Amino acid sequence: MSSWLLEGSGDWLDDRALSHGMGVFETLLVVEGSIVDAPSHRQRMEDGCERMGLRCPDWRVVAEAIQQHSAEFEDGMLRGRVMRSAGEGGLASDHGENEKTVLTLVPWTEGPRRLKVATAPWARDERSPLAGVKCTSYAENLMALRMAAGQGDLDELLFANSKGDWCEGTTSNGFAVIGGELVTPSLDSGCLPGTMRSKVLRWASELGIPCRERRIPMQELGEASEIFLTSAIRGVVPVVEFDQKPWPEGEVCRGLQGRWRRLVGLDRS
C-alpha cells in the first residue's frame, strides 16, 4: 500500500481521527487514473464532513493526486481511500487544528463473485448522528467481518436496524427481489447512501425493472427470490447463502452485475 499526505502535517498522536474516530473517508475504485463515479463520492464526502463539522478537502487536489500517483502502479485498476481527519483539538472543538487529508492506493483485487452471509446479532441504530456517514469510527464493521470469518466461510453479515428492518451489509448496501419487484432499504433505515446503490437504482429504471426504496422487515427478506449486495469496489455481487440456507442467483442480479463489469472494463462483450 502507498499513502500520501495531501493536506496537513505533523504526527497523528493528537489527531482526533486516531484518538476518537473523528473523520470521514471514501473508498474509491480507480480505473486508469480516474475515479469511477467521482461526483457521487465527492458529494458524499462533502455531506459527511458537514455532518461531522469538518472542512471538506478540495476534491480537485484529490483527483489530481490520484491521477498522478496511479502512474506509479502497473495495474490499471486500483482501490483508493481518501480520509479527512478532524485534526488536533479538545473534545468539544468545532474545527480542529492541522486537519489532514490522506490518500492511499493499492492494486484492486476482485473479491468473491458469490457471497455467503448471515444476520448480524446486533442492530444498527438508525437514529444515530452517524447513521449514513462513512465515518472512520469503523470498529463495529471490522468486528462484524471478524465474526463472519469466525463462522466458517461467511463473507459478510447483514444488519437490521432497531425496528427490525433490513439496513445494509457490513461493507455494502443490499437489494432483494420480492414479489417480482426489486427493492432496497430506504435511507431512513440508517444505511449508507452508497454510490453503487444509486447506480443500481438508476440502471433499474433505465432497464424498466420495477424498483423502489422501502422498509424491508428481516422476515420479509427471508422470502426474497434474489438477494445481492453492492459496493463501489465490488460492484454487484449475488448472495448464494443466507443464514445457512442456499439462495438462488437470479437474472436481475446477473444483468446488473454484467452492466457494472462492462462499465469498469472487466467484460468487453
Results as ranks from 00 to 15, higher is better:
3 S>L: 11
5 L>E: 09
5 L>F: 09
6 L>P: 04
6 L>E: 10
7 E>L: 10
9 S>H: 15
11 D>W: 09
13 L>K: 12
14 D>T: 12
14 D>E: 14
14 D>F: 13
15 D>T: 01
16 R>P: 02
16 R>Y: 03
17 A>L: 11
19 S>L: 15
20 H>D: 15
20 H>Q: 15
22 M>E: 15
24 V>Y: 04
27 T>G: 14
29 L>N: 07
31 V>F: 04
32 E>C: 11
32 E>V: 03
34 S>N: 11
36 V>S: 02
37 D>K: 03
41 H>R: 03
42 R>K: 13
42 R>G: 06
44 R>Q: 10
46 E>H: 11
46 E>L: 14
47 D>W: 07
47 D>N: 13
48 G>W: 00
49 C>A: 12
51 R>G: 04
52 M>Q: 12
54 L>P: 02
54 L>G: 01
54 L>R: 04
54 L>A: 05
55 R>H: 11
56 C>P: 09
58 D>I: 07
61 V>D: 14
66 I>A: 05
67 Q>D: 15
68 Q>G: 07
68 Q>V: 11
69 H>M: 06
71 A>N: 10
72 E>F: 09
74 E>L: 13
76 G>R: 14
76 G>E: 07
79 R>A: 12
79 R>M: 10
86 A>Q: 01
88 E>T: 14
89 G>N: 10
89 G>K: 09
94 D>V: 14
95 H>Q: 10
96 G>R: 08
98 N>F: 00
100 K>E: 00
103 L>G: 01
107 P>E: 03
108 W>H: 09
112 P>H: 12
113 R>P: 00
114 R>I: 03
117 V>H: 02
118 A>V: 08
119 T>W: 00
119 T>G: 03
122 W>D: 09
123 A>N: 13
124 R>G: 02
124 R>F: 06
127 R>G: 08
127 R>I: 07
134 K>F: 07
136 T>N: 07
138 Y>V: 04
139 A>E: 09
141 N>L: 11
147 M>L: 15
150 G>L: 10
151 Q>L: 13
155 D>T: 04
156 E>Q: 08
164 G>Q: 06
166 W>I: 11
167 C>Q: 01
168 E>Q: 13
174 G>Y: 05
175 F>I: 10
175 F>G: 05
176 A>W: 05
179 G>M: 07
183 V>I: 13
184 T>K: 04
185 P>L: 15
186 S>T: 08
186 S>Y: 06
186 S>F: 04
189 S>P: 01
192 L>V: 08
193 P>D: 13
194 G>I: 06
195 T>N: 05
196 M>S: 10
199 K>S: 15
201 L>P: 05
206 E>S: 12
208 G>W: 06
209 I>H: 01
210 P>I: 06
212 R>W: 05
216 I>Y: 02
217 P>N: 06
217 P>F: 00
218 M>K: 02
219 Q>H: 13
219 Q>V: 14
220 E>I: 11
225 S>K: 06
228 F>A: 02
229 L>N: 08
231 S>Q: 02
232 A>R: 00
235 G>M: 01
242 F>D: 01
249 E>F: 01
249 E>R: 07
251 E>T: 10
253 C>W: 02
253 C>T: 12
253 C>S: 10
256 L>P: 08
257 Q>W: 00
258 G>S: 06
262 R>H: 04
262 R>M: 08
263 L>C: 00
265 G>L: 03
267 D>F: 05
269 S>N: 13
